[in-house]
């Protein structure tokens, strides 16, 4: 059986965060990443959010795959489509192995990102990409646990969102391993992800 993390375990893990170091040791790993090595991080362990199909999802639901997780919003004209396009290109560069990459897009603007628009938006980049959302409180809690900053900024006629543009990558056992920077190319992302597949 593969290791699975139930929701209850997730809560325990949340409480235990900071007390335990787990997974691989920081030393002796052969990997050289373009992104930030987050192996052993005591944050971003799991989430409990809703998929665009209305079903609840946590990280463990994607066990066995490498997961790339990105926080954003669909009204974003710039960083979010660029990051999702890069994820689609990285997946393509991985060829057949790309089938074991699951890309998740968590909205930090649930007031405007309805399940319908979130679903259409993520699928425009790749049919396998999934959009996830929570209510305002769940969104705030999840972002905090993932050390993701976001804030509403009013503009003349509307509002926009400032937000962290880092993409987290989890290995096939569900351990947080990497933070991909906005400036990394699709090829660099694919090279990093390949080491975890």
């Amino acid at each position: 059986m593969t290791r699975s993390m139930s929701r209850r375990n997730f809560l325990s893990a949340l409480f235990a965060a900071g007390l335990s170091l787990h997974g691989c040791s920081r030393s002796g790993r052969p990997e050289r990443f373009h992104g930030k090595d987050l192996t052993g991080a005591d944050f971003g362990r799991d989430f409990l959010l809703t998929g665009t199909d209305g079903k609840p999802y946590s990280l463990s639901d994607f066990g066995g795959n490498v997961v790339m997780l990105f926080f954003g919003f669909t009204q974003c004209p710039d960083v979010c489509p660029t990051a999702l396009l890069r994820a689609a290109q990285a997946k393509e560069l991985l060829g057949k192995d790309g089938e074991r990459l699951q890309v998740l897009f968590i909205t930090i603007d649930p007031e405007r990102d309805t399940p319908g628009v979130l679903d259409a938006y993520t699928h425009a980049f790749d049919p396998s990409f999934r959009g996830l959302y929570g209510d305002l409180e769940q969104t705030a809690r999840t972002a905090e646990h993932f050390r993701v900053f976001y804030q509403k900024v009013p503009t003349g006629s509307s509002y926009t969102m400032d937000h962290s543009a880092i993409a987290y990558v989890y290995d096939r056992r569900g351990e947080l391993r990497l933070g991909l920077h906005y400036s990394q190319t699709a090829q660099e992302c694919a090279d990093d992800i390949r080491q975890l597949l």
Binding site: D78, V153, H163, S164, A165, S183
Partner: peptide
């Protein structure tokens, strides 16, 4: 748009 410490800011 500007990036500051991995945070995207739009003004």
């Amino acid at each position: 748009m500007a990036m500051e410490n991995d945070v995207m800011k739009m003004r």
